[in-house]
Write a protein that binds this DNA or RNA. Sequence first.
DNA 1: ATCGTTGTTCCAGTGAACGGGACACACGGT
DNA 2: ACCGTGTGTCCCGTTCACTGGAACAACGAT
Lengths: 255, 255
Amino acid sequence: MSLLARATAILDCFDVKRSALGVSDIARCTGLPKSTVSRLVGELVDLRYLERDGAQVRLGLRLFELGELAAGPKELRKLAFASMADLRDATGQTVQLGVLDGVEVVYVGILRGRSSVKLPSRVGGRMPAYATGSGKALLAFSEPDVVERVIANGLDAVGPRTIIDPEAFRRELAFIRAAGVSYEVEESRPGIASAASCIVDAAGVPVAAMSISGRVGEFDARRVGLAVRTAVVGLMRQLPHRPLDRIREQTGLSR
Amino acid sequence: MSLLARATAILDCFDVKRSALGVSDIARCTGLPKSTVSRLVGELVDLRYLERDGAQVRLGLRLFELGELAAGPKELRKLAFASMADLRDATGQTVQLGVLDGVEVVYVGILRGRSSVKLPSRVGGRMPAYATGSGKALLAFSEPDVVERVIANGLDAVGPRTIIDPEAFRRELAFIRAAGVSYEVEESRPGIASAASCIVDAAGVPVAAMSISGRVGEFDARRVGLAVRTAVVGLMRQLPHRPLDRIREQTGLSR
DNA sequence: ATCGTTGTTCCAGTGAACGGGACACACGGT
DNA sequence: ACCGTGTGTCCCGTTCACTGGAACAACGAT
């Protein structure tokens, strides 16, 4: 395990629930020797990636800065914001924007609806991809090996109706690919339903997914699904105009 | 230069203006050998701190996540948000919240005013402390060695009226400490004026500064200065109630 | 006073990072 | 076609910086 991996393991210990940790806490959490952790924490503090708060230590200012600079999610959020707001206003439900990272979906933007059922999601938070509307929408348009990796990673039931059978899951993705919309009822969490649609770029690679979630009762799947889909196609129409970097990426990808 | 310092030097190359860089760009910018950069970039990509975008590389998803988790700024922003909104609505000018980091102030929150004169500041952005309203307010309540470090670092003119004389600067801070408000007219940038006030915690250590900026013409310094000050004292009144972590910090600081 | 904590420091041993150089590739100019 | 210059990656012997057990000092609780 390289030094960088150790350092990042330290940063990974922090969570919305555990926002301040001691050296020993970190040593336990990472499995690294205490002396090593002490030294690395010291270096990270000097670099302002961590900051001391008495005997505890918490995530530092530089991470905040770099997070604000992380161009990808920011740009995406800006582009999608208008559509998301329309959707939120039209339905009153909460709208989310997520990207795929390995076997999980990371939410990069959230607009909470009026009927603010408290969703567990949070900007920067993660959920298993196979159990969420956004995740399934993204996987439906991803390469087969990405999907297989998710399946191989295990389809554990995280909600009352999570799809745990690999074959059923593949069929579900095929259906989503055809429909352009994914639905999910109590697959991620009891009492919650959602509909999502995948945003793909000009080359057909999935970029993000927009989803809309609400309480199972007050949620008209058909209607809402259509709304998400229309919002997404509207968004995609203005997507390929993004000039330089997209072109550069294209040429880069073509070897 | 340790490995961690090298890795962070790579991350520091990125900027709002240079959001995507190649390996050679980074090598030039950091002064590190290209082969070293290539290897480190590879590791950082594996760790998702960077992501490849064709031949270019940009800041990755994990930095975005960690930035969202950085508790300090987030908490502060939440606390100050109401007062900032009041101030913005009352004056129509843009309100900023900044913290001190070394010799610079980092903006952790911005509410743009109606008369949206385009300020150069940005959430997560930096400005030299000695040349801004927020920075001077923070320095006025900081330990002498902090102030001296800033002065030793050099008071270069960044605006038409930047204070560049060390002695004048010390007098300015003494005045601000007495008044509780700092003013700044064209010290940071031509055509811009601002007033700021420092938020100190129960122990008297400066935490952040709230500032309000506008075009020199449409800016009534007296009136606005008083408004900022009242907003800040109102904010501070509800500050010491913050329970556990503050107490822990206290005990930690008292050795 | 005696534990069980905490975090920090020391230092010799070693394994991982280093980086010069060779390499493959993609351009653009002549 | 032939360079010249730009990329980014990879190899591999050298070496030096990271490692981590152990000893340490400070607390707090029992």
